[in-house]
Amino acid sequence: MAATHGIAWTFGDHINTEAILGSGKEENWGSAMDGVLAYYDPEFARKVKTGDFIVAGRNFGTSSGRPAGEILRQKGVKAVICESSSMIFYRNTWNIGLPVLQCPGILGKVKKGDEIEVDIEAGTVKNMKTGEVMQAEETPWILLEIYRQGGMLGWIKGRRTEYKTLEQA
């Protein structure tokens, strides 16, 4: 997969899944879409464009295991690049087909509104303004493989033949 360009939206440390989903709004996806990350950047939900990136600090996606990455994907976010990511969010988000790159030092190299180029397979992030290229930590090969097959549900489809239906069992 080729590298893609987009605008970076920056966030700090410990952004949790409640904040990503606009806490308590999960029963109402429409208002969650309007309130995504609003606690930290009220502009984000209105102005984020398809192909943009989230650049964040430590422990992004901490807190509950609900699939908060899904709302970012639906907003058009192409990848999350963070200093570090909370465990369940990390796997969850790759599994729905939205990559999360852990790239220590990224928040010091990219500012809100900077154009960046991200190569998921290579794990590189380039700031187009400064030209600086940063290398993210290696992604577990299984997650990359799941991502290539369209996420975990795509992976299940690929193995469904091994799985008997009620009628076959």
């Binding site: 807190s63 509950s64 295991g65 699939p67 465990m87 369940i88 796997r91 969850n92 599994n95 729905i96 996420g151 975990m152 549900l153 992976w155 299940i156 193995r159 469904r160 091994e162 799985y163």
Partner: peptide, 28 residues
């Protein structure tokens, strides 16, 4: 659910997973 680590108190390996992963577990 993230708080699945709680089961460790009874010497049980408990860990939270995502919903799509649970779909996998329910299959296999």
């Amino acid at each position: 659910d993230s708080h699945t680590t709680i089961y460790g108190a009874l010497n049980c390996g408990g860990t939270g997973i995502g919903e799509t992963e649970m779909a996998w577990v329910l299959h296999f």
